Simulated scan of single mutants.
Amino acid sequence: MPVILAIESSCDETSASVCVDGRILSNVIANQTIHEAYGGVVPELASRVHQQNIVPAVQQALLNAKVHKNDIDAVAFTRGPGLLGSLLVGVSFAKAFALARNLPLIDINHMQAHILAHFIADEKPKFPFLCLTVSGGHTQIVLVKDYFDMEIIGQTLDDAAGEAMDKTSKILGLPYPGGPLIDKNARLGNPDAYKFPEPQIPGYDFSFSGLKTAILYFIRDNVAKNPDFIQENIADICASVEKRIATILLNKLKRAAEEYGIQDIALAGGVSANTGLREGLKNLCAEKGWNCFIPKFEYCTDNAAMIAIAGHYKYLQGEFVGQDVSPMARMPFGS
């Protein structure tokens, strides 16, 4: 019955979690509001705030789980990918905690952990399954054959879907973080009000740079005609952008599922918290008779629970690393 302490610090959330025998007993997330003034994450500030948050987050995770530090069997941590300074804080803490208590270390790939978040719930997808992983920096369709046997069959060639949403929010003058505000406004708008182009990329790869440019020119041209265009139509704009991004993602996912003959379809990553995308996948799976798996909201964005569950399965396989381990900002997916 392994007891895993997990640390996540890849971007601007400092998170700690405790997992006992594959059950998540706590998941503490400390957000960083300092970046709101800059309209995006400032890496140097993020790493400094991680230093302030990491000890209290771990203490609270242990308290919430009612687990003593002497009961910990291993320490799992995000090794990458992510912001190097932010990763360094989490990796350093994990190494120090493990060294002080003579515990094994488990390094976790952040993107693989997003996928393995589906194994926190009671209803789990069966291997093999397809997972659409969508975040601010990544957009991937992954064929998941086993816990750590995963193959990327499609990915973004340039910008990620989450980045397209963030860029749209900036164009519209929405405060950071803009993704949740796009979602909120979209619920009040008409998703068919405006038509945005769908990139014609071969295979299962994605591209969102052209869509970002199309949105920019659309807003520019309409504001030139009517300075109040954004304020008068923000709900319809958000709903239309959200629908186009969702259809780009789901059309590729549908084709992949049909070609590979897979019926268990999963959604992961920060953008999987988007209401339009979640509902779109549910409707697609209902139409095709597929099984749909979407994590709870708290496990969609960056969190240590997904690192903990990934650490649990690595612990069972005896996959540990030494004290010479270092963070990897561009950690390969297969690592």
Rank of each mutant, 00 (worst) to 15 (best):
R101G: 02
K288W: 07
A286P: 01
V89K: 01
D183G: 06
V144Q: 13
G173W: 04
D264M: 13
C19M: 00
V18F: 00
V58T: 11
A256G: 03
G90I: 07
A329M: 14
E151S: 09
F77R: 05
I72K: 05
L87P: 10
P327K: 00
M150T: 08
S15L: 10
A310S: 14
P327C: 07
R278F: 05
G178N: 10
D192E: 08
D183V: 05
D236I: 01
C131H: 14
A16C: 13
R255W: 04
V321N: 04
A74C: 07
E287V: 04
G173F: 06
K314E: 00
V91H: 02
Y147K: 13
P295W: 08
F119I: 02
G261N: 06
N226L: 03
C131V: 15
K314Y: 10
K254A: 05
Q112Y: 14
S17N: 01
A117C: 07
M306A: 00
I307Q: 06
L211H: 03
A268R: 08
Q200P: 07
L181Y: 03
Q323T: 04
S335R: 15
T33D: 00
V325D: 04
G173Q: 06
P327F: 01
Y176P: 03
I219A: 07
K252H: 01
N303I: 10
L211K: 02
D73C: 00
A257P: 07
V91D: 09
H50C: 00
V58E: 06
P227W: 15
S10P: 11
I106V: 09
S26N: 09
V20L: 05
V89I: 15
D166C: 00
L105K: 04
P43A: 13
A6E: 07
P202S: 00
E232C: 03
Q155I: 02
A268D: 14
K288P: 07
P175E: 14
L5E: 00
R330Y: 15
S17G: 07
I201R: 02
D228E: 09
E198L: 01
V325S: 01
A94Y: 10
